[in-house]
Design a binder for these strands. Structure first.
Lengths: 214, 214
DNA sequence: AATAATCCTGACCGATTGGTCAGGTAATAA
DNA sequence: TTATTACCTGACCAATCGGTCAGGATTATT
């Protein structure tokens, strides 16, 4: 978190590495988000990072290595955000916090969401193992949590999985389809007020939809 | 709709053309859905259509021509489905029908949805004009319709646009993220029963969410 | 039967792809 | 100071890209 002349003072080399890797990863996220894995080119990424292509391949030997690192970053950010579901045992509080967190991520890190979307649309050629391990476990555990709320009569009986899908779909839509939303907003990105309103609407509809009266 | 030895009898040439164009468009939808515009290659499309690449370029001079035709098909199908919103003035009936239609389309034509998703993620380089004309008009008109329901007290006050986005996001998620859903379903595609359950859950949560009691 | 129109395709084009490599420069360790 | 290590990059590679083209094969028109 600390901001200081690159890296720990001492280690000019280390600082250079850190700086370049960061620039490359940022550029890669942009290009992968926009063109998908196959459509992205390493020369375009290098250009956007402001370095020669050969230098990019010095840090990341193959395009796939770079792609994996980008996906890794995103997945970890999402996993962290996912914890917001656990911080309360009250469904209203837990779900409100989770939906808000995901909406905020769609606004602050739309590129990550797009890379993920591209990867899934392409049938997850690279990260299938994530889906089958971490994501599957996470989903099962949270579905169980929601089921308990149902059993305790805190929310109406619905299939937990389909509720989770709805939350993912709706929140990530604001990142993945941001361009469409902007166009339908007369070419203007959603203002702070509109974003607040969207969050409120999404949260209210879903909560009320599962029987949590506002 | 009629099935008969290719084309209208008479015109063997016309029949051949019809057959080949269809094969190419089908193959193109698959490949564009999976790889996006930049990632798709004409040779891969030709291969999947079972013809030489040069023959593909005989029917569709450029990759962009072919892509436009694919997008055109999808957009028209969606527009037609969109009419299901208008066939009733009762919000429950109209929205139920619309949601069901979109869910059915996500199941029967997931590739079209994926091509659209790819295009929007890439900021709609090809079809921006559709967004700014047809889609903008359609959205404004339906938002007005929903607003009228609100004014008449038939549904709770929400911003119509965000309701539409939620419907699009949730229904299209079952196409675009179908692979993720399948993986989380232990590698099995959703069965007929699960699909029915998903449709019912989605519809109920959204309707109840805007104040239409079930 | 002759002519015209359409369908078809192997071979080819310049441009771009992901990736390599030899050799140079700058920082660190001895 | 002298090795040693790490960083950097122009030039290059085979493979593939979107697209062309000459010319052969079929079908339609006269």
């Amino acid at each position: 978190m600390s901001v200081q002349g690159p890296s720990i003072r001492n280690g000019h080399k280390a600082a250079i590495r850190e700086e370049n890797e960061k620039a490359i990863l940022e550029a890669a996220e942009q290009v992968f988000a926009e063109y998908g894995f196959s459509g992205a080119t390493t020369s375009r990424i290098a250009e956007r990072a402001g370095i020669p292509k050969a230098n990019l391949h010095y840090y990341f030997p193959t395009k796939e290595d770079l792609y994996r690192r980008v996906i890794d970053n995103i997945f970890n950010i999402w996993l962290e955000a996912a914890n917001s579901l656990d911080e309360s045992d009250d469904p209203r509080r837990a779900l409100t916090r989770y939906i808000h967190t995901k909406m905020d991520l769609s606004r602050s890190r739309p590129l990550g969401s797009k890379v993920w979307a591209n990867e899934i649309i392409q049938r997850a050629p690279i990260i299938q193992d994530y889906l089958e391990t971490t994501l599957r476990e996470w989903t099962a555990s949270r579905a169980g949590m929601i089921q308990r709320w149902i059993d305790e009569g805190k929310i109406l009986p619905i299939e937990p999985r389909y509720l989770l899908y709805m939350i993912w779909a709706t929140t990530q839509h604001y990142a993945d389809f941001g361009h469409q939303i902007t166009t339908l907003n007369d070419g203007q990105e959603l203002s702070d007020e509109q974003w607040q309103e969207a969050k409120r609407n999404v949260t209210e509809i879903i909560l009320r939809g599962i029987g949590i009266s506002s």
